[in-house]
């Protein structure tokens, strides 16, 4: 039985909980919408390096060893990166910006990523990102669902609504959009505001046929051997455009994953995923910018247990 801070909390609707020993989801799906076949061809071209074959994408140094080598600078203590003084200076793009734009987000796996337009309780508007983990389920950061400790009167609490736009490409919504007010998170975030429990899901009214990524609670060793991939909707790029970057996982703790993948405001909620054996599994949820690394909430066993219960 799950206990706080992983105790589920929700905005509305019925809440189902169940325990599971399974550290991963059912297999990912490419969905049945157009474009799947072309993506299978693209996936075969990637050569098993753990990153996507995106036109125009290369790390600044441009070599595979760079991709597979953690940053040479001293990393902050993992706990210090999340809590307690002295805090690191936060920058979300580190050094040379090597993000690449996704030319056609309407094909898998890009269409399993979505742009989020959130409205908070005070009426303020926000943008974020999410990753489909089921036909009606979008994984995202807890702070994209529930505002905590904002300091702004009337803002804290569940978002009043979130518009979900899979595969968005600027003003083009290849699969349309849905708006939801049904969210799941955990008390570690909604009550305690603890960054280490900053995750949740959006439950959509109806299914999207865009496919989804699996999710997997990897071991420390497996995580540290993983190239983290992130695609999402950063606010510093043209509105609604999808951008991709990848980098080796740099450090892990029981509840957090740190990486040097470039991001910007608006990419909170993107799944950090592993691409291995032609399957994509989310291993963390991107949430924070940090000094030398950005970070996300780790999909450990308890998180996976909740996701298994929530995924529809």
């Amino acid at each position: 039985m799950l206990e706080a801070p992983h105790m589920p909390d929700f905005s509305e609707g019925d809440l189902v909980t169940r325990d599971s020993d399974r550290p991963m989801s059912s297999p990912p799906s490419k969905g049945g919408a157009k474009g799947a076949a072309s993506l299978q061809v693209e996936a075969l071209r990637t050569g098993g390096k753990g990153l996507e074959d995106v036109e125009g994408y290369s790390r600044a140094a441009g070599t595979l060893s760079d991709l597979l080598t953690p940053p040479s600078v001293d990393l902050p203590d993992v706990g210090e990166a999340s809590f307690g003084p002295p805090r690191p200076q936060a920058e979300t793009v580190h050094g040379v910006d090597d993000r690449a734009q996704i030319g056609d987000p309407s094909v898998y796996p890009w269409r399993a990523q979505c742009s989020l337009s959130m409205t908070a309780a005070d009426g303020s508007g926000w943008i974020g990102s999410g990753t489909f983990i089921g036909p009606r389920t979008v994984l995202t950061a807890g702070h994209c669902l529930f505002v905590k400790n904002s300091g702004v009167p009337g803002r804290d609490g569940w978002m009043t609504s979130i518009q979900v736009m899979p595969g968005r490409n600027a003003a083009t919504l290849p699969y349309g959009s849905q708006t939801s007010s049904t969210f799941r998170s955990v008390t570690g975030w909604t009550v305690s505001g603890n960054q280490e429990f900053d995750y949740g899901v959006i439950i959509l009214p109806t299914s999207f046929d865009v496919g989804w990524l699996g999710y997997w609670g990897l071991s420390d060793a497996d995580l540290l051997a993983t190239t983290g991939n992130i695609a999402g909707y950063p606010g510093d790029k043209p509105a609604g455009s999808m951008w991709y970057a990848a980098r080796q996982i740099a450090a892990v703790s029981p509840l957090k994953v740190h990486y040097d993948i470039d991001t910007a405001g608006g990419q909170s909620g993107s799944g950090v995923y592993r691409f291995l054996n032609n399957e994509r599994h989310v291993v963390a949820v991107h949430a924070y910018g940090g000094a030398t690394t950005n970070s996300g909430t780790r999909l450990n066993g308890e998180v996976v247990t909740n996701l298994l219960a929530w995924t529809v």
């Binding site: 990166a81 999340s82 805090r87 690191p88 200076q89 936060a90 920058e91 979300t92 793009v93 959130m118 926000w126 943008i127 974020g128 950061a141 702070h143 994209c144 960054q195 900053d198 606010g235 510093d236 991001t263 910007a264 405001g265 608006g266 990419q267 909170s268 991107h286 949430a287 924070y288 910018g289 940090g290 950005n294 970070s295």
Partner: peptide, 11 residues
């Protein structure tokens, strides 16, 4: 784009 602490990556 820069802050003294880790900041949620929203806009």
């Amino acid at each position: 784009t820069h802050a003294p602490v880790a900041i949620p990556d929203v806009a």
